[in-house]
Design a protein around this nucleic acid. Structure first.
Length: 438
RNA sequence: GCGGCUGUAGCUCAGUGGUAGAGCCCUCGGUUGUGGUCCGAGUUGUCGCGGGUUCAAGUCCCGUCAGUCGCCCCA
């Protein structure tokens, strides 16, 4: 006997049993339907991009998986270096630049594909996962209304998944950047990184970090905290609290105006569904204005965002000599799904999509069973034909295991009628192909 | 990439130096053409891998690989 290679799950590369995968597929169907209902059209880009494309923005910390052939000659440099994409925004930028003349702007597209990151897996963090992106890209100018449309679309998409309450948190990077500029703080990246952790490490942790790591003065820290602790859904409150800081800075003022516009636009969203949270800044460098994060209110111990995004003034300048501002947001489908699954919020679907299992009473009746199954399919039922004229007990047990709700018996003898058994209650009645209903 | 914990049946795990176990799952049976419950029988293992200590190692020691949690970062 040949030695078996014992399979084991690959960490960070999730796979599910059919009854769970069906739920994931239903989610994808729903999200897609919502995206399309707002006029977003779909594209699919290759799993790989050229390394130069992925690295154009200097994203070196993304743990990119490179692609090379097992049999490749190490000295052969004839192939372009390819790597798996780590998000869908960079491929979108490349796509938009490449097909610029054939696209209609503002270009509204959605993309539901897998992305790959070679990071260490943890709860809610995979190495292969689905992202469901929507983005709008315009030429030169992109109206702010789109910044407000993003959360509205996402909220509708998430609500249809029956995952309880979610909260979309909104901020605008210009406000903090403007403040830091006016305070003369130079190490913007490290500073924003610390502020971004406010929810996790608290005011004391942020204070300590800003003091010890960046060397900010108490007065600077006070200003930064006064800004970043603002949490409200009221545009007026944002305006009041921020003007109290007396910041003379153009970017700051623009950011405040933009954020207030978005908040006003979304003011009809349900309580808790939306919140301005000025501690949200996002690590990604290419966001320049509005930024979003989304938390699951049902699972407070899971604090990471399940849906994030933002506005970028100029994403495609590495690939085309035009200014293409955009705004986008992405549902971290695999994260969302795996975390909810882990916490017992996802109910497995039936193991089989079939409505009816067509029993085979005997070899002589196989043809009849086949014809009956086909006739029922024509009426819109999903019908699985059992594979052999085995004991009825086995055929029923099979239907039971696959959660197929009905078992259909063609007549055992000529002249008898068809019968259908409801597996839930167990009752069995005479029926016909034309009259059967679930 | 750095630190803590864990590797025993398909799954969840017990086994603290002396013959490899339990529950679940799975297969078969409990008589004519009817599932679930119940009853009975059965299959399943290089104890992650390599070395060491010992009369004897799943158990102790060293290494290694994998998993997992935290850090970094992120959907």
């Amino acid at each position: 006997m040949s030695k078996v290679f014992k399979p084991s799950p690959i960490s960070g590369f999730p796979e599910y049993l059919p009854e769970i995968r069906r739920v994931e597929q239903q989610w994808i169907d729903h999200i897609r339907a919502v995206f399309e209902s707002y006029g977003f059209c779909n594209i699919e880009t290759p799993a790989v991009e050229e390394v130069d494309v992925l690295m154009a923005k200097g994203e070196t910390d993304k743990e990119i998986y490179c692609l090379n052939r097992l049999q490749a000659d190490p000295d052969d440099n004839s192939d372009a270096r390819l790597a798996l994409h780590f998000d869908q925004t960079v491929p979108l930028a490349r796509y938009t630049a490449q097909h610029f003349n054939d696209l209609v702007f503002p270009f509204k597209r959605y993309q539901i594909q897998k992305v790959w990151r070679g990071e260490r897996p943890q709860v809610g963090r995979m190495r292969e996962f689905y992202q469901c992106d929507i983005d709008v890209i315009a030429v030169d100018n992109l109206p702010l209304h789109f910044d407000a449309e993003m959360p509205a679309v996402i909220y509708e998409a998430l609500m249809g998944l029956n995952i309880g309450k979610v909260q979309i948190k909104i901020s605008n990077r210009r406000i903090l950047i403007g403040l830091l500029e006016s305070l003369g703080i130079e190490d913007v990246i490290s500073t924003t990184r610390i502020i971004d952790k406010l929810d996790k490490i608290g005011v004391d942790g942020v204070t300590a970090g800003l003091k010890d790591e960046i060397g900010l003065t108490d007065a600077q820290i006070a200003s930064v905290l006064a800004l970043s602790t603002i949490k409200t859904r009221s545009a007026a409150e944002v305006k009041d609290k921020l003007s109290a800081l007396n910041v003379e800075n153009e970017a700051f003022q623009q950011g405040v105006d933009e954020l207030c516009f978005v908040l006003d636009y979304l003011s009809s969203m349900p309580e808790d569904a939306m919140l301005a949270d000025l501690s949200i800044v996002r690590g990604l460098d290419y966001y320049t204005g509005t930024v979003y994060e989304t938390n699951l209110l049902e699972i407070p111990e899971f604090t990471s965002s399940v849906c994030s995004g933002g506005r970028y003034d100029d994403l495609a300048s590495s690939y085309i000599n035009k200014k293409l501002p955009g705004v986008g947001i992405s549902i971290g489908l695999t994260r969302l799904f795996s975390v909810l699954l882990e916490h017992g919020y996802i109910k497995a679907a039936p193991r089989s999509p079939a409505d009816i299992l067509m029993a085979i009473p005997s070899e002589e009746k196989r043809g009849l069973a086949q014809e009956t199954a086909q006739a029922l399919r024509k009426r819109g039922f999903k019908v699985e034909l059992y594979h052999a004229p085995q004991k009825i007990k086995k055929q029923l047990s099979y239907a039971e295991k696959k959660s197929i709700p009905f078992v259909w018996f063609p007549p055992f003898e000529d002249g008898q009628s068809h019968e259908v058994k409801n597996m839930d209650g167990g009752e069995q009645i005479a029926t016909t192909v034309e009259s059967f209903t679930k």
